[in-house]
């Protein structure tokens, strides 16, 4: 599903974020990417949906070499990847329901099917009763669950989450991770970046350790 081969990423100015990173994520696998702040976790995750391009090496997602993708092909790559961010990137001028509807507005779903999918996604993360609320009215954990609902509403084969439990209390963090595990159990490939090793060890899943831009 995801394959990194000797991937390096250097930013203008010479700062090296990743060096010689190689790993593969099989379809239906769940893996945690752990490392301290500044280890390169976010950079690695950004290479998967082509938010960043590798300086060298190959990033293959669903058989496509992301580094060689033309600009016009990137949206179609991203539609098959559910992205969850630490800062959620929600639209606060829209309701919970409208936030989840956003990815469906350009994927060509018929309106009734789109509405059904949006409500199903909200139901899975336990936010259906709050569909008319504004995201600003939600707690941090609920906002993160809303971001997950938006990420999965297009039924992607791959879920990528960058620090989804950061700033959450232990109970909310566990609830969020349980949702990812539940999606993985129905066949979705999941890669989660976190710095919370104690939380990760509870699930007994594969762990990729990143330190100073290199996988350990």
């Amino acid at each position: 599903m995801v394959s990194f081969s000797a991937v390096a990423k250097r930013y203008p100015g010479g700062k090296s974020a990743l060096e010689g990173v190689s790993f593969a994520l099989e379809p239906g696998e769940l893996a945690f990417l752990i490392g301290r702040s500044g280890a390169g976790k976010s950079t690695l995750l950004k290479l998967i949906p082509a938010i960043e391009r590798p300086t060298s090496g190959a990033v293959i997602v669903n058989g496509q070499n992301v580094g060689a993708l033309k600009r016009g092909a990137i949206p179609y790559l991203r539609r098959n990847i559910g992205l969850v961010f630490q800062d959620q990137k929600l639209l606060y001028d829209r309701s919970v329901y409208d936030n989840v509807m956003l990815p469906l507005s350009f994927s060509g779903q018929p309106p009734q099917e789109a509405a059904r999918r949006a409500r199903a996604a909200l139901d899975k993360v336990g936010l259906l009763p709050r569909e008319k609320a504004s995201p600003i009215e939600l707690s941090g954990g609920e906002q993160q669950r809303l971001a997950i609902a938006r990420a999965v509403v297009n039924r992607p084969a791959l879920l990528v989450a960058d620090e989804p439990t950061a700033n959450l209390d232990v109970e909310s963090a566990a609830k969020v991770l349980d949702i990812f595990v539940a999606f993985n159990q129905v066949g979705v490939t999941v890669l989660i970046a976190t710095h919370d090793l104690a939380l990760v060890e509870r699930y007994g899943k594969r762990v990729l350790r990143l330190a100073e831009g290199r996988l350990g």
């Binding site: 016009g72 949206p75 991203r78 539609r79 992205l83 990137k89 639209l91």
Partner: peptide
């Protein structure tokens, strides 16, 4: 700007 950035992130084409 925020809406455009999020839309690009989740797969909206430039034309859309």
């Amino acid at each position: 700007r925020a809406e455009i950035e999020v839309s690009k992130l989740i797969g909206a084409t430039d034309a859309f």
